[in-house]
């Protein structure tokens, strides 16, 4: 399908990349944030710095490292491609991994703040009754869920807009790895201002929806805290 020069593939690929990247963020970032929130100060600051590293690197540098790490130049990449048959370079899952790494610091920071707000007395009492794993599922997750949800929305938004790392790892192949941001880049380069305009307006619309969702979650958080 085609409308005003937009192929729907751009949205399909963007949705796939963003969803997978957000899932990766949640799966890796949540336990990491919990670990940071529960660690002694020294260990926590070390883990925290590690989790923040992607924030201080240019996304293109992250993309470059990923290209090297997942490609045939590295031993790990060779193992992935030759032994497991997993090719990530120039594929949309590769783009998702790149986006997830870039947005991980934002996700971890927000989630960690939620975990740190839980009353330490609650966790202490819980720990005397159930295993640490159950404390995580039965106390930490239910009490920090507004922060987790907010972090997921923020991560999702960041993943949707990821450009630098994505374009290096996955390139900009229409129908395969071309996402909304890379399509805007393409359209601008080609002088197709109508297309660039439409795509940019769409991102603006999605952005407003996501921000409204965040505001709603923030409101929920405030209310839960008052209880």
């Amino acid at each position: 399908m085609n409308f005003a020069g937009i192929t729907w593939d751009v949205f399909r690929v963007s949705a796939e990349v963003t969803t997978l990247a957000t899932v990766l963020c949640v799966l890796v970032g949540t336990p990491l944030a919990w670990r940071i929130a529960r660690s002694r100060p020294a260990a926590a600051s070390m883990l925290s710095s590690l989790a923040l590293l992607p924030l201080v690197l240019p996304p293109t540098a992250i993309g470059y490292y990923l290209l090297y790490g997942l490609g045939r130049q590295s031993a790990f990449g060779q193992f992935l491609i030759d032994d497991l048959g997993i090719r990530l370079i120039f594929t949309w899952p590769g783009a998702a991994i790149a986006a997830a790494i870039v947005s991980l610091p934002l996700y971890v920071r927000t989630t960690q703040a939620g975990f740190e707000q839980i009353d330490p007395d609650l966790l202490a009492v819980a720990r005397t009754m159930i295993s640490p794993q159950r404390v995580f599922w039965r106390v930490a997750i239910p009490l920090a869920w507004p922060s987790l949800a907010a972090a997921t929305v923020i991560g999702f938004a960041r993943n949707l807009g990821e450009f630098g790392a994505t374009i290096i790892v996955a390139s900009n192949i229409p129908g395969e790895t071309q996402t909304i941001p890379t399509a805007i880049y393409d359209a601008t380069q080609a002088g197709n201002h109508g297309l660039a305009n439409t795509l940019a307006a769409l991102t603006l619309l999605i952005g407003i929806v996501l921000l409204s969702l965040l505001a709603l979650l923030f409101h929920r958080t405030q209310r839960t805290r008052q209880l």
């Binding site: 009353d119 007395d121 202490a124 819980a126 720990r127 005397t128 159930i130 106390v139 209880l227």
Partner: peptide
């Protein structure tokens, strides 16, 4: 032993009931 394996009952100053 981990706290939950010690068979202790703990009550703290500010109740610490699970709000949810």
């Amino acid at each position: 032993l981990a706290p939950h394996l010690r068979n202790v009952g703990l009550v703290v100053q500010r109740y610490a009931l699970f709000p949810h």
